[in-house]
Design a protein around this nucleic acid. Structure first.
Length: 304
RNA sequence: GGGGGGGUAGCGAAGUGGCUAAACGCGGCUGACUGUAACUCAGUUCCUUACGGUUCGGCGGUUCGAAUCCGUCCCCCCCCA
């Protein structure tokens, strides 16, 4: 079975730089497992790799979508797997690098996403329902998922309803799966002391401002009528600016919010990677963590 | 010096005799997550595994019972001088 390395961890630990150094030592090519870095023209706020940092390593799923397009797990999974194949045809090592937990898991686990026709009339119908109505509808249509979805989680309820409407219940799909990786994969997780991480995140946001985050936002705002409703603008570092452009917040307030949201996000990422996937963790505050990772990957690649 | 307001859990802020270890918000922590996932949602947050223990600026009273009433002391803010 062909091998894959995947790098995960919270925002700001240094996944990007590790991915490049691993790609160089192991002849790798990098696939981004990130829901925001796919968007062109969104560079500073997504902490995207700069071109000069890429060191001629091929990168995939970065700058592949226009910021007014939608992106989702299904699209990601399909493309990521195509690129894995492509890289293996090059006889190179696929390295998935990203912080979007669901995407990283979907790339390598036996998650399946069906073709789904847009049924706008049904979605509109759901919009007219109250929260309680949606929930009771779901308890009738797919009672089994109701054990897994919290009654308050409207977004998930609607998704489950539309899946059932599309012909396949969410509970059936999940039941049909084995919940195991379909690839031979080594998962590298980067971590560091929480407090230090938070400091680093704060500093990184300040650096983004110094690098011209606000200018980046202004340019995008001028290119589209209502950027704030775009999926790409739900990303941290972008959505927080809406009140500023509406005259309801200062720059400083927006920056603080971005820092806070980034910290909260980092915590959620930990929760995902600790509990949803089998990760080999490395503390970047250990002096020799890079060598350890390289040695462990060498061993992993040497196994047959 | 005179007058007024105030000191409540990490922070903000309710509570003005028992139902209060103390609403609520923020922050923190933990968790869930299968097409918005940088999303959405849940739990928890004085100490203690528990029994229980210690709290509402300090000390001392009143009371069966006090964050809440009284006395006193300390600190902060505003106004007058």
């Amino acid at each position: 079975m062909e091998k894959i390395v995947i790098i995960v961890g919270p925002t700001g630990v240094g996944k990007t730089s590790l991915s490049i150094s691993l790609a160089k030592t192991f002849n790798g090519e990098i696939i981004s497992g990130d829901s925001m870095q796919v968007y062109k023209e969104m560079n500073i706020g997504t902490a995207k790799v700069r071109n000069h940092e890429k060191e001629d390593i091929p990168h995939y799923l970065i700058d592949e979508f226009h910021f007014n397009e939608d992106y989702n797990v299904k699209v990601f999974q399909q493309k990521a797997r195509e690129y894995i194949k492509l890289i293996q045809e090059h006889h190179h090592l696929p390295i998935i690098c990203g912080g979007t937990g669901l995407y990283c898991k979907a790339a390598i686990y036996d998650y399946t996403f069906l073709e789904q026709a847009e049924d706008t009339s049904f979605m509109q119908f759901l919009q007219t329902c109250s929260h309680d109505e949606l929930w009771s509808l779901l308890t009738i249509i797919d009672p089994k998922v109701c054990e897994v979805i919290h009654p308050n989680n409207k977004q998930r309820i609607i998704r489950a309803l539309s899946m059932a409407h599309n012909g396949e219940k969410k509970s059936d799909i999940i039941e049909a799966q084995e919940h195991i990786p379909i690839f031979d994969v080594y998962v590298v997780g980067l971590t560091m002391e929480r407090e230090h991480l938070y400091e680093r995140i704060n500093q990184r946001v300040d650096q983004m401002m110094a690098d011209g985050l606000l200018d980046e936002i202004k340019q995008l705002v001028n290119k589209h009528e209502d950027v704030w409703s775009l999926q790409s603008f739900q990303g941290i570092g972008y959505k927080e600016w809406k009140p500023y452009f509406e005259g309801n917040a200062t720059i400083e307030e927006c920056v603080e919010l971005i820092k806070k949201n980034s910290r909260n996000f980092a915590k959620r990422q930990y929760t995902w990677f600790r509990n949803q996937m089998q990760v080999h963790w490395y503390d970047i505050e250990d002096d020799h963590y890079k060598e350890e990772i390289q040695n462990d990957i060498k061993k992993y690649l040497g196994e047959e």
